[in-house]
Amino acid sequence: MALDLPQTESSAKVWHPATTESRAARYALIAITLAFLGLFLFMPLVSVFVEAFRKGPAEYFAALLEPDARAAIRLTLLVAATAVPLNLIFGVVAAWTIAKFEFKGKAFLTTLIDLPFSVSPVISGLVYVLLFSSHSVLGPWLKSHGIEVLFAVPGIVLATMFVTFPFVARELIPLMQHQGTTDEEAALSLGANGWQTFWHVTLPNIKWGLLYGVLLCNARAMGEFGAVSVVSGHIRGLTNTMPLHVEILYNEYNFVAAFAVASLLALLALVTLVLKTLLELKYGAELRAASGH
């Protein structure tokens, strides 16, 4: 059966869906966005690499291979390799606690997990200075047992952990809340014990969200400046992480070396971004439940 649809009388009037802007408005918005991104994100990123290679690749690699730079790279890797796995464990435990149990003070705990995000990193660092300095209660006691925290690697690891703690937990909490506990109940009813349930059911269910959280946590752990700067003491070759090393080189007007090390951090950011995009493309549906960020 054919229906004779009435033709539109005036051809000048083109019908628009309610949510579609006019062509001019669309182009203007796109142009503004692109200009903004170009000016504030892309140009600085490019300039890091341009500055780093200003005196040629030889100078660039020399700056990276110089002993202090190598020490800074090593320390950064060490800090990330300690802080990230620990935060992975704490993050999973915290997310599990909040998502799967009901208890008093749960809302407070959830807020507390976000604390490192809302506090300035400098303050995060100062907290540890207060806790472990020679005038504190803990500091002298630890010192008498031969443990140096402040102006040493343990302090840097602690400050980094504090700052990066929320990443894994915040990624997992909404995901686990969304998934609920029925899969776990099913596993238990089939006879699995707690560990088997976690290993075979819970962990596979959260693995992509977990990886995503770890990726962000790692990027921040390697790039953290403020908190680490306060507790590090800036001892060259000993307690300088890469971001601190960049700052020192820059203050000494050693621009090529500063930007060379900075380019490594920028590269890390790019790799993180690519991996993050790949994860989102492939496991978008699972990650969407975790809309923490």
């Binding site: 029925t182 899969d183 109940e185 099913a186 596993a187 238990l188 009813s189 006879g191 699995a192 014990n193 075979h200 059911v201 596979p204 269910n205």
Partner: peptide, 17 residues
Amino acid sequence: VQERNVGFVFQHYALFR
């Protein structure tokens, strides 16, 4: 629940995806 040895079918099946 493990020791009771019951077969439980959940409302939304709870299959391991």
